[in-house]
Design a protein around this nucleic acid. Structure first.
Ligand SMILES: Nc1ncnc2c1ncn2[C@@H]1O[C@H](COP(=O)(O)OP(=O)(O)OP(=O)(O)O)[C@@H](O)[C@H]1O
Length: 799
DNA sequence: GCACGAGCCATTTTT
DNA sequence: TGGCTCGTGC
């Protein structure tokens, strides 16, 4: 039967969507429509099998993937139905179950969530207090790894026995668990673990579930795998999609083996493969294939391009990270203009191995005024001013969260220093009380701490108590009123602690920016407390009623808690900004990890050098290769890889191992393509868009400085202009030589580009004869400049 | 004991 | 960039 759900699917995809199999694996390469298939199957289960949306669980790994999935499902089944689905990251779904049924496994009802920063801070404090030598982030990673294996500190201690080298870690692990428990916090791993415990002891909580669907299954870890089975225990209806080649979360204990394990556990598992790629041009796919096939252990797979060859990807050398950034900017501008704005800023993504690499790029974009959004990296909620504001809210919500109390009790300064806080914290731990209760009793004179308190500190504590109690009172009042405004509460906090003057003092130069982000938070808070939104939030977190299974239904008293949970588990600031405002054209900067499952017409992957990708600290080189593969396969029409010959610390950088393998070079051009009219038309076809008129292009071209990628020498050296400028900038009044207005270099490059104008020609880029002479000229000038500098220095010394 | 400024450092990836 | 230590002055 023909239904709209199946429109635009190929036959293999249809088979997968309509498969009668109860346990189904769809394994397929990037861009083959896995996500599309999964969303269609959700719609199909609802429309044809009459499953109730609230009995369907759809899990993803990243928040972004969850959002993408939600958007796509909404497109198929509509708003109403979509929001009834239980869709989200594993962690957010686990958290919903724990909120409503946690009491069955003795979980306090209002647990808070310790995010990565909290966990790190806790471990750091433990290490410091005990004067341990272990690196805190390493310790935290190990704790997380143990948890994922289902080994708690007691179990670890049993296994470790008396091995000396493990004692320190064991101690950290123990204290970490104790601190979380004392503050009524669950960390990310706990959410999964506790949910597993809950569902294995009380499977009735999920007895309503009719189908479970998992995206990016190759990234499941053991606990998530078990959760999947537990969710599905009633009907055993499971659909997963995944691609072993895109497994990039090994560091988070993802287990590719889960694919096999699943087939063993459910012997009726049906596997469907998709092999046609609908995303990328043929040339991009070939290059990506070549990279992934470098892994000798990888079984051969079919991957067919549905698009034509298109433009060959680019592998560009630049002198430095800053030059690389400027080059990216100029290529974006060039493409925009020469395609007559067929390509917009939204079409461009810059994907990075590590978030910190964005700095030079952000600077360059900032200088040009090109708007961009940064995903991943220092997220909105990680900014100091935002974290501080949120910590106040967390303490107001949950004063027994000693970690948060410890962080804010002296910010802004109340003359309660580190020593005092440490002392009180220690007392609290010994007495098995929360830091808040110790402080409160002390201030009320009902308790005299052994920690010495001078008068200013005593006063400071009293002020702090006053703030928190004041806000809590206000919160209570507000909750009982019909209109509840979270923004008011937050504003009240900020006023009480004189946050503005604090920011002014702490960040005299960037006060404006900091306050703007606080305003953004206020806006989010105000939106979150809009009645419709509250309703939606409650509905979303609410699980279906199950007979004989007592549940705690969230109410308006929980708005603050839900808001905070949302921040920890699902919110992403840029999304909220998008929803509230106009959709503006902007470039996306993202980590490769966060880009998984997404696609853009143009993708840049800068910093392709050894040490960055593969990362110097990576344990699994194959995973690094897959990472590059994932990055490359995000591109639809044009892919740029690049490398600065000096990295951001100005050390020499060499091309990534993955890119120097024999034959790789043949898949790449050495510079950006010439954008001729046929190229524009071909781009339009790949992107399924309408090509602009030649006139439009001519018009845009006018504002452009150069229409070829020929400013930076292909060998990655500084161009002549830069050299001259460098000398002007750095040696007073010393000028190298008159700078030719149209440098010789660019003339020679222009020749090269004309030679290669037919795109996707095969074979490596030919080196033009003219190039050597330009090189020689350039080298001569360099040498000359160097000599003159040396002369001058000698002169200065002899003076 | 506390606040604050200068200088030094490295910097993976996510829930 | 920001996160840390160290030194200084209160
Ligand atoms: N049958 C089809 N016809 C046309 N376009 C399709 C078809 N199937 C998928 N596409 C398109 O191909 C692109 C990639 O699809 P999708 O994101 O679902 O792939 P994927 O397999 O999930 O990729 P990845 O593994 O990289 O996440 C999307 O733009 C989608 O609309």
């Amino acid at each position: 039967m023909e239904t709209p759900i199946l429109l635009g699917l190929n036959s293999a995809q249809r088979d997968a969507v309509t498969s009668a199999a109860t346990v189904l694996q769809v394994l397929a390469p990037p861009g083959s429509g896995k996500t599309k298939t999964l969303t269609a199957r959700v719609a199909y289960l609802i429309a044809h099998h009459r499953l109730k949306p609230w009995n369907i669980i759809v899990c993803t790994f990243t928040r972004k993937a969850a959002r993408e999935m939600a958007d796509r499902v909404r497109g198929l089944v509509g708003d109403e139905v979509a929001k009834q689905l239980k869709l989200g990251t594993f962690h957010s779904i686990a958290s919903r179950y724990l909120r409503q049924y946690g009491q069955h496994i003795g979980l306090a009802k209002d647990f808070g969530i310790a995010d990565a920063a909290d966990s790190r801070a806790i471990v750091k404090r433990i290490v410091k207090q005990n004067r341990f030598s272990m690196d805190p982030s390493n310790a935290h990673n190990r704790i997380s790894a143990q948890k994922t294996k289902g080994i708690n500190s007691t179990e670890f201690s049993r296994q470790a026995g008396r091995k000396v080298d493990l004692q320190e870690f064991l101690q950290i692990y123990r204290e970490y668990e104790a601190i979380l428990a004392a503050s009524n916090l669950l960390d990310y791993d706990d959410l999964l673990l506790k949910c597993r415990d809950l569902l294995s002891k009380h499977p009735e909580c999920v007895s309503n579930v009719e189908a479970v669907l998992i995206d990016e299954f190759q990234d499941t870890n053991n606990i998530q795998y078990e959760l999947m089975g537990l969710f599905a225990h009633q009907r055993n209806t499971i659909t997963i999609v995944g691609d072993p080649d895109q497994s990039i979360y090994g560091f988070r204990m993802a287990e590719i083996k889960n694919l096999v394990r699943m087939k063993q556990q459910w012997e009726n598992t049906i596997v469907i493969n998709l092999s046609e790629n609908y995303r990328s041009s043929g040339a991009i796919l070939k290059a990506a294939q070549n990279i992934i096939e470098q892994d000798p252990n990888r079984p051969a797979k079919k991957l067919q391009a549905t698009h034509s060859l298109g433009l060959r990807p680019v592998l560009r050398k630049l002198p430095s990270a800053n030059a690389e950034a400027r080059w990216i900017v100029s290529e974006i501008q060039r493409l925009q203009a020469l395609t007559g704005e067929l390509l917009q800023l939204n079409d461009v993504a810059i994907l990075l191995r590590s978030a910190y690499l964005s700095r030079s790029i952000e600077t360059a974009l900032g200088k040009t005024g090109l708007p961009y959004r940064m995903v991943g990296g220092t997220r909105f909620y990680d900014r100091v001013e935002i974290k501080l504001a949120l910590d106040y809210l967390r303490v107001v919500d949950q004063p027994d969260n000693s970690e948060a109390v410890a962080r804010i009790v002296n910010v802004p300064s109340r003359r309660v220093g580190e020593a005092t806080v440490e002392g009180l914290l220690f007392e609290a731990r010994v007495k098995a009380r929360s830091l808040w209760s110790i402080i409160l009793e002390t201030v009320h004179g009902r308790y005299s701490p052994t920690t010495k308190l001078n008068e200013p500190a005593r006063k400071g504590l009293a002020m702090f108590v006053n703030v928190i109690i004041g806000v809590r009172k206000k919160l209570k009042e507000a909750e009982s009123r019909p209109v509840f405004s979270l923004a008011d509460i937050l504003m009240f906090v900020l006023k009480k602690i004189e946050f503005q003057s604090y920011l002014k003092k702490k960040f005299p130069d960037e006060y404006e920016a900091r306050w703007t982000s606080v305003e953004e938070l206020l806006m989010q808070a105000s939106e979150a407390s809009n009645p419709d939104r509250i309703q939606a939030m409650l509905e979303e977190s609410n699980l279906p009623v199950i007979e004989g299974c007592e549940q705690r239904v969230p109410s308006t008293d929980d708005v603050l808690s839900l808001f905070l949970e949302n921040v920890a588990l699902t919110a992403s600031a840029e999304h909220i900004a998008e929803e509230s405002g106009e959709v503006k054209q902007q470039i996306t900067i993202s980590t490769i990890h966060a880009a998984k499952g997404l696609e853009w017409p143009i993708v840049f992957i800068p910093a392709c050098y050894d040490g960055s990708i593969p990362h110097s600290r990576a344990e699994d080189r194959d995973e690094e290769r897959r990472l590059l593969y994932v990055g490359m396969t995000r591109a639809q029409a044009l892919l740029y890889l690049s490398i600065p010959l000096k990295n951001s610390q100005r050390e020499d950088a060499t091309l990534s191992t993955f890119l120097i393998q024999p034959g790789v070079a043949t898949f790449f051009e050495e510079h950006g393509p010439s954008i001729t009219f046929p190229v524009v038309q071909s781009l339009a076809t790949t992107l399924r868009r309408i090509a602009p008129l030649a006139d439009a292009i001519r018009e845009h071209k006018k504002g452009l400085e150069r229409d070829e990628d020929n400013y930076w020498p292909l060998n990655g050296e500084e161009p002549l202009e830069e050299l001259a400028r460098w000398d002007q900038d750095h040696s007073n009044n010393f000028v190298l030589a008159p700078v030719p207005s149209k440098p010789v270099a660019s003339f020679a490059y222009a020749q090269i580009t004309t030679l290669q104008q037919g795109f996707a020609s095969t074979g490596p880029a030919p080196i033009s004869a003219g190039f050597t002479s330009v090189r020689a000229h350039y080298d001569g000038l360099m040498a000359q400049a160097r000599l003159q500098r040396v002369d001058r220095r000698t002169e200065e010394c002899t003076k």
